[in-house]
Design a protein around this nucleic acid. Sequence first.
DNA 1: CGTTTGCATTACGTGAACGTCATCTACGTG
DNA 2: CACGTAGATGACGTTCACGTAATGCAAACG
Lengths: 133, 133
Amino acid sequence: MTEDLMTIREMCETYDVTPRTLRFYEAKELLFPIREGQKRLFTKRDRARLKLILRGKRFGFSLEEIRQLLDLYHVGDQQMTQMTRTFEIARERLADMEARREELTQAIDDLKEQLRWGEKVIASMKNEKKAAE
Amino acid sequence: MTEDLMTIREMCETYDVTPRTLRFYEAKELLFPIREGQKRLFTKRDRARLKLILRGKRFGFSLEEIRQLLDLYHVGDQQMTQMTRTFEIARERLADMEARREELTQAIDDLKEQLRWGEKVIASMKNEKKAAE
DNA sequence: CGTTTGCATTACGTGAACGTCATCTACGTG
DNA sequence: CACGTAGATGACGTTCACGTAATGCAAACG
């Protein structure tokens, strides 16, 4: 089963996506399953890429943006031409992501603050209730 | 100018959105500008909400999800009924966001690792070149 | 051997999030 | 008062990311 190759159905169950989605990603050149006759067979590489795709989506990247990110992760598959340029892009992406994390941290702190405030309000409501008894 | 009320155009320039977007958000009940005759006037509250909307979008939330989040931030505007339930939701959201940050941290580390690997490859390429001279 | 099962392709449909265009109105200005 | 400017209101168009048939093919099964 885990002979490094998975059918489309196995992929769907493993990663909780539909066949349509996998075919769509292939059409958009995000995945490159090999063919056994007609059937698609997904490799270890495809699975790694799919994980990154799903992760990217959770952070609001478009599929096109994700495709470019994926290329960064797989430079090794090709020649090293334009390595310098690739590095620039990768560093920019890294900066993006760190900025994003900063923003997320801020959002988390905001929400925590909000919760603390809410607790205060509830506490004062209890007091009022007590006083009214 | 900063009399707590802004026209649609001022909003657009301040937050870099189109009028269409602001009207759309109003239609979706994400914003509640007041009316002066026909014209919309956006309050401090609308601006706070818009900031949260834009932030939410950067993290891949749908407008509907954002609308629910916004309600969490403005419980104070209404009665405190169902406060407990609201708190549950808020805590879940907080957990979501913290998990998300964890994932983002992982992605950042992955990319950093990738960069280190790339540097190694480049270094070895230089050596080969030297050896070839 | 017919049929079900699994996957393929082709093509049209859909919901979200706006863009775009036409038309209308109210207001200030020369 | 003519006119430009800002904003409002439909209504239709568009892009993205798939969903949903309809149809076909090939191996597996009873």
